[in-house]
Computed example of a mutant assay.
Amino acid sequence: MTDLNPSEPTSTASPSVILVGVDFGVPHFDGELEELGLLAQTAGYTVADRVSCKRRAPDPALFVGSGKADEIKLLAQSTGASEVLFDQALSPAQQRNLERHLGLPVNDRTLLILEIFAQRARSHEGKLQVELARLQYLSTRLVRRWSHLERQSGGIGMRGGPGEKQIELDRRLISDAIKRTKERLGKVKKQRATQRRQRERRDAFNISLVGYTNAGKSSLFNGLVKARTYAADQLFATLDTTTRQLYLGEAGRSVSLSDTVGFIRDLPHGLVDAFAATLQEAVDADLLLHVVDASNPAHPEQIASVMGVLKDIGADQIPQILVFNKLDAMDPATVPALLVDLMELDGQSVPRIYVSARSGQGFPELRGMLAERVMSQVGEAGDMGPYDQGSFEGIENT
Rank of each mutant, 00 (worst) to 15 (best):
L257T: 03
P268E: 05
V292T: 01
G308C: 10
Q389G: 02
D388F: 14
L366V: 06
F263P: 10
D341H: 13
R253T: 10
V340D: 08
N296P: 13
A276W: 01
A315W: 01
D286L: 07
A282F: 10
M384P: 04
E301F: 10
D312K: 13
A277T: 07
V335M: 04
Y354G: 03
V309N: 09
Q280K: 13
E344D: 14
A298H: 09
Q320C: 11
G390Q: 13
D293T: 06
A282V: 12
L288A: 02
H269Q: 11
P336D: 01
D341W: 06
A274K: 08
R373H: 12
D331Y: 01
V355K: 06
V292Q: 07
I318M: 02
D286M: 01
F263R: 11
G262T: 14
M330K: 07
P332S: 05
L288E: 05
A282H: 06
M384Q: 14
I313L: 07
V283Q: 01
V340L: 03
Q348W: 11
D293Y: 03
D341Y: 04
F324P: 04
I313K: 00
L322R: 04
S254I: 14
A285Q: 04
D316Q: 08
A285N: 00
A282R: 11
V291A: 00
P297M: 13
T334Y: 06
A304N: 10
D286R: 02
S376Q: 15
G347C: 05
L345M: 11
S376E: 15
L279H: 03
R367T: 12
Q389W: 15
V283K: 06
L267N: 04
G379M: 04
Q302H: 15
L370R: 07
A251E: 04
Q320P: 13
V261A: 04
G314Q: 11
K311G: 15
G385A: 03
M343H: 12
P336H: 09
N325I: 02
S349P: 14
A333P: 08
L342R: 14
P300M: 07
S295K: 12
S305C: 11
A381Q: 14
D328N: 06
R265D: 11
M369T: 04
T334G: 05
D284C: 09
D286F: 03
T334F: 07
S305N: 12
A282G: 05
Q280I: 08
Q320E: 12
P300Q: 01
D316K: 08
D331I: 09
A277H: 10
I353N: 04
P336Y: 00
A329G: 09
T278R: 10
S295L: 10
L327G: 02
V335N: 01
V272P: 04
G347R: 10
K311R: 14
V378N: 15
A277Q: 03
P319Y: 07
V323W: 05
M307F: 13
S256M: 14
L322N: 05
P351K: 00
A282M: 09
R265A: 12
